[in-house]
């Protein structure tokens, strides 16, 4: 369960306030995959960051006792001068993996990402697609209550996209996903409920189909 209480989030520019959320109160029930829709710049990514607790509302509170993955696809938490392997090791360590588990995680990510020799090269040589592959593979290894995914499913060639989707479908039997996507098919396939965000207001829909209809009407 995720509860938003009187949540207000804005960005200050010189003259005006740009509101992302304006005094929002909603309650998202547990065990649902959540799709987030809205036009560009409405604040979908900011909302994801706030749900993942790496950004914070200006007023109000977001309450939840679930674990959230890092937002995939939004920048990346990798150190450029270190290799892919070393970065994977770091993330595994902060999540408490040791010895055997650590090795297992590394070979899992290496296999999944399919970036070949680049795995042992500094991240700064990676393309953004390669970084996303690594980040996505890494998060698949852990069972969070919620996986936070921002458009990452459109990374890579068709075969890789299919593999990612298959993995995710398998994954959401245990974890739940919070997904931002502009692909209605992906949203329909993965998500149960929807959130439409626009002009500082968000609307919660019990059914992803209604959210998609609302989105398509407004665009």
């Amino acid at each position: 369960m995720i509860i938003l209480k009187n949540v207000t989030k804005y960005f200050k520019t010189k003259k005006t306030y740009k509101y992302i959320l304006n005094n929002v109160n909603i309650c998202i029930p547990s065990e649902k995959n959540i799709g987030i829709l809205g036009p560009n710049g409405a604040g979908k990514s900011t909302l994801l960051r706030m749900l993942g607790q790496i950004d914070f509302p200006n007023k109000g509170k977001i309450e939840s006792n679930c674990t959230f993955s890092w937002p995939m696809g939004l920048g990346n938490g990798f150190q450029g001068s270190m290799t892919g392997r070393e970065n994977v090791k770091f993330v595994c360590r902060i999540y408490g993996l040791k010895n055997k588990q650590l090795k297992k995680a590394i070979s899992f990510v290496e296999d999944f990402a399919e970036i070949g020799d680049y795995f042992n090269m500094p991240i700064k040589l990676y393309s953004s697609g390669m970084k996303s592959r690594l980040s996505f593979g890494l998060s698949l290894f852990f069972d969070f209550d919620y996986m936070i995914i921002d458009e990452t499913l459109s990374v890579g060639d068709q075969r890789f996209q299919k593999k990612s989707k298959d993995m995710l479908r398998d994954k959401i039997k245990k974890s739940k996903a919070i997904l931002v996507s502009h692909s209605m098919d992906t949203l329909r396939e993965i998500c149960d409920v929807g959130i439409y965000i626009n002009n500082g207001d968000i609307t919660y829909f019990d059914n992803i189909e209604e959210a998609i209809q609302c989105y398509q009407k407004n665009v």
């Binding site: 270190m82 902060i94 297992k104 698949l140």
Partner: peptide
């Protein structure tokens, strides 16, 4: 495919160990 359940235990310790290696 349960690989690694994320737990909220000893977070400070794990994070500092990870950062130490990295640093």
């Amino acid at each position: 495919m349960t690989l690694m359940r994320v737990k909220n235990k000893n977070i400070d310790y794990h994070v500092i160990v990870g950062l130490l290696y990295r640093e």
